[in-house]
Design a protein around this nucleic acid. Structure first.
Lengths: 156, 156
DNA sequence: TTGAGTGCAAACTCTTTGCAGGCCC
DNA sequence: GGGCCTGCAAAGAGTTTGCACTCAA
């Protein structure tokens, strides 16, 4: 479960000789247990509620470090700030163009799609592919309802 | 060729009652003819070389407007600033994690992949899908060589 | 003509940086 | 104990905004 995830992630860091400071553990645990795609600001606010001694610079440093070790990915969507997501298992995101909500999509088809993207890319560009980021845009069910789009495709 | 693209894009704007100012035409034409994924700063610098009277605010306003009309897409990659790309035909991007270069991938498989993503997403989340952004990450051929990674051009 | 578009620069927001002290390994 | 990490605040980078002037329709 989440705890195993945390152990797994901590091991990956340890294997890379990264110091496991209390702040890093707390931030990593926060990202593993909250799949809400938080920004640095949200992480900081939440951790401070539970009176953790954490500074903004540390959160920035830590998420960047976690991104470097492929434990977390960055999502730069329209709203100006950067969102983070623990990437324990392959998935992709759908973003609502109306309200900005980000939803995870976990589906068995994704690994095949991902593999095909890697193959196609390798063949046509020569890149050594490490990862495929997919971001689908659309209108979430709530907004479809609000906008009266239930059965019709809105052309724009 | 590119000229037809421009006419097509201008028509789309005109049909939406968007004023076709000289600045907008110039910026649009620049994006159609330069598939270099420029930032606002690069667009501004290049246009000013050819002594176009353009200000930074206008470039920001215009690219945002073009994004709204789906003529251009935003690419927010690691380097802090936002890159823009004229999106005349479906394609996706590969980003080199070492040097930051962005390469277009044009392949017939993409439309099938894109359609599958839309279907899968619709089924599992209920979103009304409008677009799929794919961004593959990896190491470009040049950097593979520089970094001494497996490579079939002669060693050394 | 007329109001949307443009240009300039200041303001704003998000992110990074420098340095002193703390703490993991 | 050594060197990396943290915390604070200020600097930096990219983007947005307000207002007067200009020009496309």
């Amino acid at each position: 479960m989440a705890d195993t995830e945390l152990q797994h992630a901590l091991k990956r860091l340890k294997d890379n000789h990264v110091r496991l400071t209390p702040q890093r553990k707390i931030i990593l645990n926060y990202l593993i247990t909250h799949h809400t795609h938080p920004t640095v600001e949200m992480i900081l606010a939440d951790l401070r509620k539970h009176d953790a001694g954490i500074s903004m610079a540390t959160v920035y440093n830590t998420v960047k470090l976690l991104v470097d070790y492929n434990l977390v990915i960055e999502l730069k969507n329209g709203d100006g700030s950067t969102h983070y997501d623990y990437f324990g298992h392959p998935h992709y995101h759908v973003v609502c163009d109306n309200c900005g909500k980000i939803t995870d999509v976990n589906t068995p088809e994704f690994s095949a799609i991902s593999k095909e993207l890697a193959d196609v890319t390798r063949r046509s560009t020569g890149y050594l592919v490490t990862r495929s980021d997919v971001e689908v845009h659309g209108i979430c069910p709530d907004c479809q309802y609000k906008l009266g789009l239930n059965n019709n495709k809105g052309a724009e």
